[in-house]
Simulated assay, not measured.
Amino acid sequence: MPKPTVAVLRPDDTRIEEAIHYLQSLGVTPIADSMLTICPTGKQPREAEYCIFTSTTGVELAVERGWKPDGETVCAIGRQTATALRNQAYSVDVVPSTFTSAGLVEELADEVGGKTVEIARSAHGSDVLVRGLEEAGAAVHETQLYRLEKPNTAGRSVSLAIDGQLDGLLFTSPKTVDHFLEIAMEKDNAAELKRGLNETVIGVIGAPTGRAIRDNGLEIDIAPESVDFEQLARLTVQEVRNEASSR
């Protein structure tokens, strides 16, 4: 019996390499099809009373540009973002219990009135964080540290999905959804893609990714509360095997 095929669309850096190894350890055939290339803007966070990071990539790029905490309250959305800061020997003051922008707004709403807040993130963040903190009375500035572009090599997973040859598909950000579907539209095969995905287990990380999937008329099978990739992969592979055994 052939191994299940599971596509991973993570950025074309160490994350997709790590994802491939992990999927192999789960006994499936990984389809590595990065939908994201990270393009740094060369900017660094401004000084503020609060500094917010939303991703490990943002932390890494800020540190490369010479950022270091200088008395501000450092906030991180997600355990992995917090770990990236701690790996630089920087303390993290706030990590919301709900790893979302809305969760951080709720955590900070009672203390940021009249304070300056710097948000250091990608150029594609939602306005939930900015709007929520401004409504709480903060003076908010956003520094876009990087853009996420579609690699020229992307598309293998789309072709396999159109042909109904994917058992599992892992989306880890709204941009992976956008680029995946853009490729299908470029191929003029959006309808065929949706039919081909009928038998594919779709796993997503995060509420924004889930919304991007649903907004495009697709169904989600696996959506763990954690933003941990390994949990997403493990649960998706488990569901792939459950569906195969029930056929």
Rank of each mutant, 00 (worst) to 15 (best):
N189T: 11
G137P: 04
L166R: 06
K175A: 04
N189C: 15
E142D: 05
L169H: 10
A154R: 12
L181P: 02
K175C: 03
H141D: 09
T172G: 02
R147L: 14
S173H: 04
I162N: 00
N189E: 15
V140R: 03
L169T: 04
T143G: 00
A136P: 02
Q144C: 08
I183H: 05
E182A: 10
T143Q: 03
A136E: 04
L145S: 12
M185L: 08
A139G: 04
A139H: 09
P174E: 08
E142Q: 09
E135V: 12
L170K: 06
Y146A: 01
G137K: 08
F180A: 13
K187Q: 10
L181V: 15
N189W: 09
T176F: 11
H141L: 01
A154H: 12
E149D: 15
A191H: 13
A191K: 12
E186A: 04
E142W: 06
E135K: 14
A138Q: 04
S173K: 03
R147W: 08
L166D: 10
D188H: 11
R147S: 15
V158Y: 03
S159F: 00
A136G: 00
E186K: 01
E182G: 01
T153D: 07
T176P: 03
D167H: 15
A136M: 04
Q165W: 06
A139Y: 08
N189Q: 15
I162W: 01
L181T: 14
L160W: 03
E135F: 09
K175D: 05
R147Y: 12
E142A: 11
Y146I: 01
A136D: 04
G137E: 06
D188S: 13
S157H: 07
K175L: 08
L170S: 04
A138Y: 03
L169R: 10
A161D: 05
H179I: 13
R156Y: 05
F171D: 03
F180I: 11
D163K: 14
G168T: 09
I183P: 00
T172R: 01
E186W: 00
A184T: 04
T143P: 00
L170E: 10
L160G: 09
S159E: 00
V140E: 02
L145T: 11
Y146H: 02
L148C: 10
D163I: 11
G155D: 02
A191Y: 08
H141S: 09
L166Q: 09
T176H: 11
